[in-house]
Design a protein around this nucleic acid. Structure first.
Lengths: 127, 127
DNA sequence: AAAACACTAAACCATATGGTTGACCATTCT
DNA sequence: AGAATGGTCAACCATATGGTTTAGTGTTTT
């Protein structure tokens, strides 16, 4: 039963992907990689951080499968790898109905304001 | 300047939201909350974990703004709060083009299969 | 009133994380 | 060859995280 359902959110890489995304430095790095490929030191430059520190961040992105590395001479060139981001988005999309319909907000409002007044809204709950 | 751009992925809650999502227990809890409201011990039951442990997880979800708590007698009833999930999805959607167009996959394939053939693709690397 | 229940709080533990520095390894430039 | 560049690795540090246990608070049941 419940244990079986758990497979669904134990999607293999989700832990690593979400963790990778939970750091602003790493999100910024990903963002830069949207524009194009960048070397490690390239990616490190904007941050007030040692190269080794930045390198560790990139390693996290790499093991999460969000970045691919290609060695070119002494430079390590990083490239955005979006597939796992798509996985993450797919996971989130399961929850879309909860904000598309604004059902949750509406319910919250009803629950807090309820008492007697009907909050005249464009939509009705539980139709 | 890059520093100014950084505002874009420093969306206030993103750190907390992604971190909250990086744990399978918490994702499972969210999943259960899709079905409807649940008390803390309710949410804790499926996991081989002390109530206090589960309670901490829920606190994380709460501070990330993904769950709202309402106290009813001695029970704390949790409700899914989807707005922040929408924020996360919005952030991810920035990257959609990278998998919608499959440009990244295509490039990856070209890069790996080519070796010696014309690398003059849609993009140029450095120099 | 007493017992059981639903939780939180605090102390504690092991491990992970984000960061540093210094040593080291290739590659490239002179 | 020697120096500079780009990067990793390992050791280290402080703090965060996921988990536990024990104690304590308030509510409900008997």
């Amino acid at each position: 039963m419940i244990l079986n359902h758990m497979v669904e959110f134990q999607a293999p890489h989700l832990d690593a992907v979400f963790h990778a995304l939970s750091d602003p430095t790493r999100r910024a790095m990903l963002h830069r990689l949207m524009v194009g490929e960048h070397s490690i030191s390239d990616l490190a430059t904007p941050f007030q951080m040692s190269l080794a520190g930045a390198s560790k961040h990139i390693r996290v992105l790499e093991t999460a499968g969000l970045v691919r590395r290609r060695i070119e001479g002494r430079s390590h060139i990083c490239q955005l790898q979006a597939a796992r981001l798509a996985e993450a988005q797919r996971w989130l999309s399961t929850y879309e109905k909860f904000w598309n319909t604004r059902l949750d907000d509406l319910e919250a409002i009803l629950r807090e304001e309820d008492t007697t007044q009907t909050p005249s809204g464009p939509k009705k709950v539980g139709g």
